[in-house]
Nucleic acid binder design. Structure first.
Lengths: 379, 379
DNA sequence: CTGTTAGCGCGTTCAC
DNA sequence: GTGAACGCGCTAACAG
């Protein structure tokens, strides 16, 4: 029923080994022989048996790319770039082709491990982990162990947009400078004159969330110190207690931005700016402000993170922090394929660039609001 | 070095066959024996060898989900839903777990076939093809043949958001009513009084593009007929020649919407509405109009398609056509796993619902513009 | 450059 | 309910 390598060999009047060599192209074969074999392959419409060849070779051409949320363009761009970089190795017919494949963990630690096990089971050639990692200690050790085993089994492990793992059994790590980006973003707001700034953070126990928030707080802290030194006016709102009160955690989605912004303004109607964990959340924040009848940036400034394609199309255009997602994805793919040398120390930090746009401006000069308008409702 | 089934068997003092039976859970095994085996598995930290088991069983637990553009939330939502539905079969430890995996074709026919071959090679349990299909005749036959072979090899083939394939060797087809949705959308504009409507279409030779455009044209044609019957005023702009002139093809991205809108207004400064191939393109169209100093919807109405999450956050909120992406993805996943009966005839059409929002309104009553404002520049 | 020979690790008959 | 043997289809040494 199903055509095997032996059938092709018989038709081409060569040995199975020769057919294998032609198909894998990793061994010298006479041109005439190769042509004969390829013709037989076409005539018989032969398709290599992946499992059999993986079994014999003790490695497969599967490459897994793990993402936290496949519906989020942040991961789509990263994964697409990596997948392209991985696929573009050898041209022509499907030989030497890697099967680059993306797995959606939903940010769930268990699913992350499950996928890794599944990939390990398939003897994957490489694994690329993207985006922020859960910070639960147990999960961290479990991950370090799992990555170590993958490494031992010959699977290349690349981290992209994810902080280094302690174990270190990793081929390469491409970390985003989330802390620096977060800091520069809030410094920008501070320099515009903002002091009462609300922060809509991502899920707790996620590295990305923590790092961006830390950058934000560092900038506020610096501003407070500077304000105090220079006479103290306007320092209200950046005291540590306030920072805690003006931070709300939620998912990385628009809903979270919407709800949290409403709540932030309830807690402090005098807020002059809202910083969101990412652009999608920022969009939700904008929607909430509009529904409250507040103008952006005249009444409240808004900023995001990532600089996804839609950020520039927001109205007003969103101030955010640009992460070179495409470039990072490509590099991760090449690293996974061993087509690029790992950075010194195995770790590279990728810069985050402030994109100041129209959604941020100096705060209103007049006295701060003490009440907020009636909501006009929205979901 | 690597732990095998035999090692586990030895440790548990049973035969390899018994271990296999425990792991696959498809055969009666005494409880005490099972526990002993499972303990040995844990102690040895054994991971099944996927290729070996696929080879022996002549089937694998890999399920491929093909998407045209992984960076587009349209596909992200679809794929995420399908992946979840596929994964949630069996709980607990990774046994019976399917490895649902998404492959990014970039809408490129060759890569589509390559991925299918790669999946065929892996003896994938199922394949889900999502979104519009290329319409090149050669590719169509090649696809039909390839899907036929996959089917023959026992791979379930499910189409989701993609029109039925002629060959018919497909487990189930979930088609979106793109034509109906497109028609209702333009009917909405017509009923508001629009007659000079620009259309920013997707890539040519793509089913989705064609169907949405056909719906649009059908609505315009109907309007023209009605106008003619009722006295004829205002029918300008919907004559077939004009329709051709007022249609511009491009990619499904914001850039395309931006550029095409500029060009459309150059061709007909009196345009009162722009319909975009999807929401992302519509966002680009909005940006172009804003940069031209035109107001939405007062000067020009804009509409999209898909109702992606950001559509409601656009300013003004985008009129669009809602496709139940999540539901469709879940259903596709269940169909692929044989966990749901295929619809009668194997084909189900999924409805598309008009979402009339603030980006569309009646056209201005005063005389049509004949020139357009100076562009303020943008990218 | 090409053929021959052994397994790769597991699922699946069969017997018991 | 359990064990023994065989073979899935291919690649990787070796020879030649």
């Amino acid at each position: 029923m199903t055509v095997t390598l032996a059938d092709v060999a018989a038709r081409a009047r060569v040995s199975p080994a020769t057919v294998s060599r032609v198909l894998n192209g990793n061994y010298p074969v006479a041109t005439s022989t190769r042509e004969r074999v390829l013709r037989a392959v076409d005539e018989l419409d032969y398709v290599l048996n992946g499992p059999a060849s993986s079994l014999a070779a003790a490695t497969s051409d599967l490459v897994g790319i793990l993402v936290n949320d496949i519906a989020d363009p942040f991961f789509g761009i990263l994964a697409g770039a990596a997948q392209t970089a991985i696929g573009e190795g050898t041209s022509g017919r499907a030989g030497g082709e890697k099967l680059a494949v993306v797995c959606n963990t939903g940010g769930c630690p268990e699913r992350e491990l499950t996928y890794l096990t599944l990939l390990q089971r398939q003897r994957a050639a490489a694994v690329v982990l993207t985006g922020g990692a859960p910070e639960d200690p147990d999960h961290l050790t479990a991950m370090a162990a799992k990555l170590g085993k993958l490494s031992d089994a010959g699977t290349a492990v690349v981290l992209c947009g994810r902080p280094p793992v302690s174990g270190g059994a990793v081929t390469a790590t491409l970390a985003f400078d989330n802390r620096g980006g977060g800091r520069r973003l809030t410094e920008h707001l501070v320099s515009l004159g903002h002091r009462r700034i609300g922060y809509v953070a991502g899920p707790t126990e996620r590295t990305t969330t923590r790092h961006r928030l830390e950058g934000h707080r560092a900038a506020l802290e610096a501003a407070r110190a500077a304000d105090a030194a220079s006479g103290g006016a306007g320092a209200a709102g950046s005291a540590p207690e306030d920072q805690e009160r003006l931070t709300i955690h939620g998912l990385y989605d628009r809903r979270s931005g919407y709800d949290a912004t409403l709540e932030l303004l309830r807690r402090d109607p005098g807020l002059t700016a809202v910083v969101a964990a990412n652009d999608t959340v920022a969009l939700g924040a904008c929607a909430a402000l509009r529904d409250l009848g507040l103008r952006i940036p005249e009444d409240v400034s808004v900023a995001g993170f990532d600089d996804l394609p839609f950020a520039v199309d927001a109205v007003p255009a969103l101030t955010t922090v640009r992460l070179p997602l495409h470039e990072a994805g490509v590099r991760a793919g090449r690293l996974a394929m061993g087509r690029e040398a790992p950075p010194p120390g195995g770790i590279a930090t990728i810069g985050a660039e402030l994109m100041a746009r129209a959604s941020t401006a100096p705060p209103r000069k007049d006295s701060p609001r003490t009440t907020i308008p009636i909501s006009s409702g929205c979901g």
